[in-house]
């Protein structure tokens, strides 16, 4: 069911993407920029649609997936990432809201989605040029951090880890491990990954998803697994019978739940999350805005593979 919900959102993501090969903004997934021209720059996070396209292409286990095995999905994924590569700042960072922002959040998450696409769609051999081009983005992530926000730190760890797996470059592996250590050290005794000094169940699950992907890509990590199990217990206690958090109790008032790590850990909460989705009682990608539905849909596909 999770993957089906995610796949159902793919036409929306494709509709946001400039798919005209002759267009100067081919591959841009920010329609406000390339079509409506209401903004002077494209939001780099929208390019995470590239991973969703690649996943829909590879996702063969879903009942009604018209995108499975369609080569054009791979082309659109590549176009999305080429646009992302072309619109970075000189130092490799990317912008989300304003020019020359050098957003740690957008650089971490979009770079993580970029490496996940590479891992899914052929790795080093198929994407050699793009991998080389992305190197300075990874170098920028090595040098920059935002310790106040665990989810962004976890995404940067995932990006660096994935890039080290693809390239075999030890420098990025060491940087990924340092970043992972920072995330684990910053976690509170009871399993909270801090979001501006407090617990936010929604962002807790984003951090857990990134750390779970970090663990899986690396072939296992006992310390990460222990931290995730603590985190799972905490989330499990805070979801209601429909798998919803109490947003008023969250430090950032989130309503969403990223289920991948919970599914991976076989959390009891998954039963409630699925029950909530089944009766349309809980937030799902279709209810979210253009900016945030894609990452949640991606997480749903990762989660489905663990059920």
């Amino acid at each position: 069911m999770l993957a089906q919900i995610a796949v159902n959102s793919v036409p929306r993501a494709l509709g946001l993407c400039d798919r005209d090969k002759h267009s100067p903004t081919y591959g841009c997934v920010d329609r406000a920029y390339w079509n409506y021209r209401t903004t002077d720059m494209a939001n780099a996070r929208m390019q995470e649609g590239g991973l969703l396209f690649a996943m829909a292409w590879r996702q063969t286990g879903v009942g009604a997936n018209m995108f499975a095995g369609k080569k054009v999905m791979d082309e659109w994924a590549r176009a999305a990432w080429r646009f992302w590569l072309s619109r970075r700042n000189g130092d490799g960072s990317v912008n989300e809201v304003y020019p020359f922002e050098r957003s740690f959040c957008a650089t971490s998450f979009s770079a993580a989605a970029f490496v996940e696409t590479l891992l899914l769609a052929g790795g080093a051999k198929e994407w050699e040029k793009e991998i080389t081009q992305a190197r300075n983005t990874m170098e920028w992530l090595c040098e920059n951090r935002n310790p106040d926000v665990a989810n962004q730190m976890a995404a940067s760890a995932l990006a660096l880890k994935g890039y080290s797996v693809i390239t075999g470059d030890r420098r990025f592996l060491l940087a990924a491990e340092r970043r992972r250590d920072e995330v684990l050290k910053s976690a509170y005794e009871d399993g909270i990954f801090g979001e501006y000094g407090g617990l936010d169940v929604g962002y807790q699950t984003i951090t857990m998803s990134s750390m779970a992907r970090y663990m899986v890509i690396g072939g296992g990590d006992t310390a990460v697994e222990e931290a995730l199990m603590k985190g799972e217990k905490l989330v499990n206690e805070r979801l209601d019978e429909m798998g919803r958090p109490d947003s008023a109790q969250n430090s950032r008032n989130t309503q969403f739940v990223y289920p991948y790590a919970l599914a991976l850990l076989k959390s009891d909460s998954m039963e409630r999350i699925m029950a909530g989705l089944k009766v349309s009682a809980s937030l799902n990608p279709a209810w979210m805005d253009d900016r945030y539905f894609t990452p949640l849909a991606i997480d749903y596909i990762f989660a489905e593979a663990c059920l």
Partner: peptide
């Protein structure tokens, strides 16, 4: 005249 396509997704593109 270059006008960005305002087309949304059409399954016939696959």
């Amino acid at each position: 005249r270059y006008v960005a396509s305002s087309r949304f997704f059409d399954p016939r593109e696959l």
